[in-house]
């Protein structure tokens, strides 16, 4: 039982990060029906910018551990949001009215470009976040010892997702985002500035990805320029499983994917981990062809 609980917590912690990255995918997808393959690279960018800022200014010493990291994450979110808006302007806006798959290839190109830009700027070696930025004593939960940082990581993910959900459901801008996601033309007729909505989506999505990047840097310590590709693929999977375009779906998909792969690794084989996770996900899609929380809407490729 301890083993199961321990593995469940392991899975939730990984899933929380997948979910956070998946939110960026799902928001962009919801409004633009675009798979933003470059999202993973924005996440990487967040991790690297966080490291750079830490080198420039010792946040934790001046502002205290939690306050310092909070300010750091906010700053990185802001910087990556600007990059997200630029990315949309350069690589996606010219393709707004072209076939959907063309924009995907552009996204792939942008992803390759950003990944290599990060490599050229920061080098190909692994970079390391300073140790002990945040206190990390083990906490006992249901008889299982869990590092405090792991719990914090999970709570922050959940908090951000809840915040986003509230924002999208309860605010005027959120309503505009939802309207644009359902039908851009109709939204435009209702007086919604769709360009503006898309910009906002490209602020929020990359900012959340960047926050995840910094958190991964702080918690795992080690970052490199290819990390976004793996997290991106997983997060994309999570977003689809939850029902792409659907915010609670992305959270659920992320957590589910994290738990699934952990359980596959824990009880079957670690070498087959991803294969097991994908296998189960395919089964889920056979039963729920639009993802777990996906709605039945007519769409065409």
């Amino acid at each position: 039982m301890d083993f199961f609980l321990q593995q469940l917590f392991n899975g939730l912690a990984v899933g929380g990060i997948y979910a956070l990255v998946a939110l960026g995918y799902t928001m962009v997808y919801g409004v633009m029906k675009l798979m933003n393959f470059a999202h993973g690279e924005l996440f990487t960018m967040g991790a690297f910018l966080g490291l750079t800022l830490l080198g420039v200014f010792s946040f934790t010493e001046v502002l205290g551990p939690f306050g310092g990291i909070f300010v750091l994450i906010l700053m990185v979110m802001g910087m990556v949001a600007i990059m997200g808006v630029l990315l949309e302007r350069v690589a996606y806006r010219p393709l707004r009215n072209s076939p959907r798959l063309s924009a995907i290839v552009s996204a792939l190109g942008a992803s390759i470009f950003l990944q290599n830009a990060i490599m050229l700027m920061y080098g190909a070696r692994f970079q390391v976040y300073p140790h002990g930025l945040l206190p990390n004593t083990p906490v006992s939960l249901f008889g299982v010892d869990i590092p405090l940082l792991r719990i914090l990581l999970f709570l922050v993910s959940v908090f951000m997702m809840a915040g986003l959900y509230f924002f999208v459901q309860r605010t005027r801008i959120g309503t505009a985002i939802r309207a644009a996601a359902i039908d851009q033309d109709a939204a435009r007729l209702m007086g919604i500035n769709v360009d503006r909505v898309i910009q906002i989506v490209f602020i929020i999505g990359p900012a959340l990805g960047a926050a995840a990047g910094v958190m991964v840097g702080i918690y795992y310590g080690q970052i490199n320029f290819t990390m976004g590709w793996i997290f991106g693929l997983k997060a994309f999977t999570a977003a689809i499983i939850g029902g792409i375009g659907n915010i609670p779906g992305a959270m659920l998909g992320g957590l589910l994917l994290g738990v699934l792969e952990t359980m596959g690794a824990a009880y079957i084989s670690t070498a087959w981990k991803d294969a097991i996770a994908f296998g189960v996900l395919i089964l889920i899609l056979l039963v729920r062809p639009r993802g777990i929380l996906g709605e039945r809407v007519a769409d065409k490729l």
Binding site: Q7, N10, V216, M227, A266, T270, A271
Partner: peptide, 17 residues
């Protein structure tokens, strides 16, 4: 005797196992 997935960050699962 088993494998982890290189490039990932979280190995708690395999460690627990």
């Amino acid at each position: 005797f088993n494998a982890l997935t290189p490039g990932e960050r979280d190995f708690n699962t395999v460690l627990t196992r």
